[in-house]
Design a protein around this nucleic acid. Structure first.
Lengths: 168, 168
DNA sequence: TTTAGATTGTTCGTATCCAAACAATCTAGG
DNA sequence: CCTAGATTGTTTGGATACGAACAATCTAAA
C-alpha cells in the first residue's frame, strides 16, 4: 500500500470522517500498524525465504514447531502454531507426502498422534532457519536497539491480553 | 498457543536446537511476537465486534476504506486494504449484495470502477466503528502510554522497510 | 464391569484468498 | 487515424483455512 494516497491525505480524510466521534487515535494507530506490519513481514519472508522451497507459511510454522520439540502431539502443534486442528491435518498430509515429517499413534493414548521429523526435514530446517533468521534480522533492523525490546515486549503483552482462554 | 508448554519450557527447547547457530534472538522475538499479536488481535476484534454483523475481516476493511474516502477506485481499495484485486472483486460482490456499497463505471476512464457507500452502509459504519475503536482501545491498553507511540511507530517503520515496491 | 460423557484427529462442506488468463479500455508513437 | 503495448476489473482454477459432524478412544461414576 502507501499506494495511491499519501499518508497526510489519508489522515485528513480520516479526521474528517471521525470528527465529533470520541475516537482513540493512538489505539487506532497501534492496531492498524500491527496488521500492516504483520502482513508486510509475512509477505517478505515468504518471498525471500520460503518461496524457493515451495513452502506455505503454515507449513513452515509446523516444521518449526516439530523441529523444536522433536516428538510432539498434534494437538500441541495446533496450539503452538495457532490454527485449527482441521487445518493442521492438511498441512501434515503435505509435509508427510514430501517426506519432511511422519506420524505415529501414541502408545499411551490411542486417540493421540505423535509427529516427528525425518532426516530430510531436519536437514531442510538446518539449512532454512539461518536464512529465515537473517531476514528476521533485516526486519528488526527497522528499529534501533532501544526500541527492539520495547516493541517485542509490547507485542507479547498485547497477545497475552487478547488471546482467549483458547481452544481449537 | 500458551497451550501445553510453558514459555520457559519452549525457550529451553529453542535454545537447545539452535545451539551453535549464529541466531539473532532479539530479531526472532520481534517477528514471532508480531505474528502472534496480529493473529490474537484479529480474532479478538472479529469475535467482539464483527461476528454480530456477520462481517468478515476483509469485508470490514473494505467498508472502512470506502467509508473514509466516499468515492474511491477499486484499485485504490486493493492497495489500501492490502490484498489482491481478485479478492476485492469477491468482497465487493458480497457487500453489494447486502446493500452496503455500490459500483459504477468511471466516466473519465472506462476501465476503472468507482465504489461508494449506500446510506445503509454508512449507518452500519457509524454504529460499528465506535465499538471497533473501543476494542482497539482495549488492545492498546496492554501498553502504557509511553510504550504506545514507540510500538506504533516501530511497526510503521517495519512496514515501510519490508513493503515491496508494491503491485497487486 | 458397564456406560455416559469428554477428548482427539479426520472428513466434509463452505468461505476466503491469490496468480494467471482474459476482455475491455486507454495511451503513445507512427 | 491506427495500432502495439499497458492498465484495469473479472473470471477461473487451485490452495488454504475453519466449523461441524463423525468415529475411535479414554475417563469416571455407578
Amino acid at each position: 500500500m502507501a499506494g495511491a494516497h499519501t499518508l497526510r491525505e489519508t489522515e485528513r480524510h480520516v479526521d474528517e470522517r471521525l470528527a465529533g466521534m470520541d475516537i482513540d487515535f493512538q489505539a487506532m494507530a497501534v492496531t492498524s500498524n500491527l496488521f500492516r506490519a504483520a502482513s508486510a513481514v509475512r509477505n517478505h519472508l515468504e518471498r525471500s525465504v520460503l518461496a524457493a522451497h515451495d513452502l506455505s507459511w503454515s507449513a513452515f510454522v509446523v516444521l518449526w514447531v516439530v523441529w523444536i520439540w522433536e516428538n510432539i502431539e498434534t494437538r500441541e502443534i495446533a496450539a503452538e502454531a495457532g490454527f485449527s486442528k482441521a487445518t493442521l491435518t492438511g498441512v501434515l498430509n503435505t509435509l508427510e507426502k514430501r517426506g519432511y515429517s511422519t506420524r505415529k499413534r501414541s502408545k499411551d493414548d490411542g486417540r493421540l498422534v505423535i509427529v516427528s521429523m525425518t532426516a530430510k526435514g531436519r536437514k531442510l530446517m538446518e539449512q532454512l532457519f539461518p536464512l529465515f533468521n537473517q531476514q528476521e534480522q533485516f526486519v528488526a533492523s527497522a528499529l534501533n536497539s532501544k526500541a527492539q525490546p520495547i516493541v517485542a515486549d509490547g507485542l507479547r503483552k498485547i497477545t497475552e491480553l487478547t488471546e482467549p482462554g483458547q481452544e481449537n
